[in-house]
Amino acid sequence: MGIIQVNNIKLFANHGCLDEEAKIGSEYRVDVAIKADLKKSAKTDNLADTVDYVHLNHIVKEEMAIRAELLETVAQRILDRFFKELKMIRKATVSVAKINPPIGGNVTEVVIILTKKR
């Protein structure tokens, strides 16, 4: 078993419960970690034998572009697509952070972390 991480995916999106969040948007950071059997790919040096991190990044970007009120919803959609499209994944964790959230205080970010197992 091995771990592939794609960290600090920076995006701009329009998630949130407030109407102004839908209009002006915010900056987000997404981190993903997946567990899969990487022994074969370590030996074959073949992309077909591993989980392609380009594909992971592509899923994150597409799902982040679809508006949701809650970050939990976005994180769950990302996880669901990982497991649907990438059969090698055994476990995945997705962290979605809203940078400078409009919550009436000096808060750097709010983060939602979800994990799913096959």
Rank of each mutant, 00 (worst) to 15 (best):
I9G: 08
N8Q: 14
I112A: 09
D49L: 02
V74D: 01
H58R: 13
L38Q: 11
G104N: 10
D31E: 11
A65H: 00
A68V: 01
F82M: 11
F83A: 07
T93A: 15
G104A: 14
A97L: 09
E20H: 09
R67F: 02
D31T: 05
I112C: 13
V51A: 06
K91Q: 14
R90W: 00
E20C: 02
I59S: 03
D52F: 03
T115W: 03
R81K: 15
A75T: 03
D52L: 10
L38M: 12
V111W: 01
V54K: 14
D52P: 00
R77A: 14
S26L: 08
K84F: 07
T50W: 02
K35Q: 12
L70I: 09
T115L: 06
V30W: 05
A48Y: 01
D45I: 11
F83Y: 06
S26F: 07
R118K: 12
Y53G: 03
H58W: 03
D80R: 06
T93R: 15
D31K: 08
S26C: 13
S41P: 00
L56H: 02
S41R: 09
F82N: 03
Q76K: 15
A75G: 08
A68C: 15
K117N: 10
K116W: 00
R118L: 01
L79R: 02
I103M: 13
D31R: 07
L71R: 05
V6F: 01
E27K: 15
L18R: 08
R29A: 12
R90D: 14
N100P: 00
V54R: 14
N46H: 07
T50L: 03
D45W: 09
E85A: 08
I89H: 05
V32W: 02
G16H: 04
F83I: 10
M64D: 04
P102T: 14
L70D: 09
K98V: 10
E72P: 00
C17E: 09
T93P: 00
A42K: 11
I113T: 15
R118I: 02
D37L: 05
N57M: 09
L70T: 11
I4T: 03
V32R: 04
V96T: 12
L38H: 07
H58M: 10
F82V: 04
F83T: 02
S95N: 12
V74Q: 04
L79K: 07
V110D: 06
G25H: 05
K84S: 15
I3R: 15
C17P: 00
V111M: 14
V96K: 12
D19P: 01
H58G: 03
C17Y: 10
I3T: 15
I66D: 07
R29F: 00
K43I: 11
I99E: 13
K61C: 11
L18Y: 11
N46T: 04
R29M: 13
L38W: 05
